[in-house]
């Protein structure tokens, strides 16, 4: 079983302090209703069903609270199971496994999450459930799921190929000679694009990958990368593509056609 919950020692994201000492103000850029402490850490209210579960005074109260919590979130967990497993029985196995995972050690993972929640419980459940599903899949079949495989195949389609398509740099060759020339120029073009891409800022590179490799919509990217609107994403994408085209022009490899 994977360790799916967060780690307080995370080097990437410091965790919030004790909730009781928080003085809150409304966060500026978040799309989740939340507040933040003076030191900038988010404060997210625990859903009542989870608070009831973790504060249950007796075993029977905890049992009832667990059922209520599960009932509230079963739809989203099942949705994840269905996205990974095609067959009903396997979906139900994965569902049961996720519940076991959450319930283990007196709901240890939920308690860790609740200690300083930094995100919505539904989002956290999607990530955790998916990890349990993928782990179960690998245990059973010793290989990635078709979902992962598909994504990995997509990722193997190099970003430079996808960007080249977007820049409409590929032109069909008509003769054998042209075909050979085109192949050569194709490689030159891709090497040049690769170099141009590595010069981009991380955030810009991530945006291109989310758009062209992962096929996320401009709206989804705007949410993830904290842009004010999808239009800002389109604008930035256009700027980046124009920059890349300009770099290729300077290098004299603006087209795969000879």
């Amino acid at each position: 079983m994977i360790s799916a919950t967060g780690d307080a020692a995370s080097g990437l994201t410091p965790r919030a302090g004790a909730a009781s000492s928080r003085e809150t103000r409304v966060a500026r850029t978040s799309h989740v209703p939340l507040a933040e402490t003076d030191d900038g850490h988010p404060v997210i209210e625990l859903p009542p069903s989870l608070a009831r579960l973790l504060d249950a005074p007796s075993a029977s109260d905890a049992d009832a609270a667990w059922h209520a919590f599960v009932a509230q979130h079963s739809r989203i967990v099942l949705h994840v199971c269905r996205s990974v497993w095609p067959a009903h029985d396997e979906q139900m196995d994965a569902y049961a496994q996720i519940l076991d995972h959450l319930r283990a050690d007196d709901h240890r993972r939920l308690r860790e999450f609740a200690r300083a929640p930094r995100c919505r419980v539904s989002t956290w459940l999607v990530v955790v459930s998916r990890r349990v599903c993928l782990d179960l899949y690998r245990q059973r079949y010793g290989r990635p799921t078709s979902e992962e495989g598909r994504e990995q195949r997509r990722a193997r389609r190099r970003l430079q190929d996808l960007v080249a398509e977007e820049l409409e740099l590929h032109e069909p060759a008509t003769t054998e000679r042209e075909e050979a020339d085109a192949a050569l120029r194709h490689e030159e073009l891709h090497d040049a694009l690769q170099r141009a891409l590595t010069d981009l800022a991380s955030r810009d590179l991530l945006m291109l990958k989310l758009r062209f490799v992962d096929d996320l919509s401009a709206q989804e990217i705007a949410r993830l990368l904290a842009f004010p609107s999808p239009f800002h994403v389109y604008r930035r994408l256009n700027v980046l593509l124009a920059q890349l085209r300009g770099t290729l022009l300077r290098l004299g490899v603006e087209s795969a056609a000879p």
Binding site: L12, V32, H41, P42, W124, R131, L224
Partner: peptide
Amino acid sequence: TPHLSADDAASFIDGTLS
């Protein structure tokens, strides 16, 4: 850098990070 924890990934998706 290490892979994202579930908390990191979910917080990034929710846009709740500093």
